[in-house]
Computed example of a mutant assay.
Amino acid sequence: MSELTAKRSAVKQAAHALFLVFRIGHERYALQAIEVAEVLSRLPLKPIAQAPHWVAGVLAYRGAVVPVIDLSALTFGTPAQARTSTRLVLVHYRPDATAQAQLLGLILERATDTVRCNPAEFQPYGLDNPQAPYLGPVREDAQGLLQWVRVADLLDDQVRALLYPTPPLDPALLEQWQ
């Protein structure tokens, strides 16, 4: 391989990003892998009273209390099915570029695949959906449409205040509840 060919390959690879693919019902969605902290099996959660129906609860994880939402329930009102491929995916949640990232858990169905592609291949889908600002552009491939879920846009101000109280919850208290 010539030096020029090697440089072109490196540039081509740099334009691609890795995405974690999951499903809600029969539809495919994707999270940019750089936002994913860890993929876990589904774990027991402590419910949060009076929270929206799509807030699955909280988890004590490595010295922190991590809120968890069910993305299927948030998006279509139906909780994720308990499958062997249903995962608890911890993501780096940052509502804006200046905020410090915090862990947020997402319950995702069939979160077992990845795809590497150029993020520029995702295109607007022509619908302004203010109730679901986290649903981003779409990309077409051999399996149909794949929609990008933007982690930063998952929570509105009211839910963010509920899930990330100031001061933060003490994980020792959470372990006593379980």
Rank of each mutant, 00 (worst) to 15 (best):
M1L: 14
P95K: 01
S72K: 08
Y164S: 07
G57C: 03
E35K: 08
A33D: 07
V55R: 00
Q50L: 07
K46G: 05
W177E: 06
L108D: 07
Y134A: 03
K46L: 10
I48N: 04
R83L: 14
Q102M: 09
I48R: 00
R87K: 11
A30E: 12
L31K: 06
T84F: 02
P52R: 11
A37Y: 02
L43T: 02
R8W: 11
A51H: 06
P67K: 05
W177I: 12
E121K: 10
E140V: 08
H16N: 15
R110K: 08
A73F: 11
L74P: 14
L108R: 01
A51G: 13
I69S: 04
K46M: 12
L20A: 12
Q178K: 05
V115L: 11
A82F: 13
T112G: 14
D113P: 13
V68G: 01
Q176W: 04
F122D: 00
P130R: 01
Q123C: 07
K7P: 02
L163C: 02
A6D: 04
P168Y: 09
A17T: 10
G144P: 04
P47M: 03
A15V: 09
H53F: 05
Q50C: 08
T98F: 13
L88G: 07
R116E: 09
P67F: 03
R83E: 12
V138E: 13
Q13K: 15
S72P: 00
P167L: 12
R83I: 12
C117D: 06
L155M: 03
M1P: 03
N129C: 09
L169A: 15
Y93P: 10
L4T: 15
D113N: 12
P137W: 08
R160C: 06
V66P: 03
A152I: 01
L104H: 05
P171M: 00
E109T: 04
T114N: 13
V65E: 00
P67W: 03
R28D: 01
G77M: 04
A73P: 07
D153P: 08
L104D: 00
H16K: 15
E175G: 11
P52H: 13
V68C: 05
R62W: 06
T98A: 15
W177G: 11
L173C: 10
N118H: 07
V91W: 11
D141R: 13
A73C: 09
Q13A: 15
L103R: 06
V21A: 09
L173V: 01
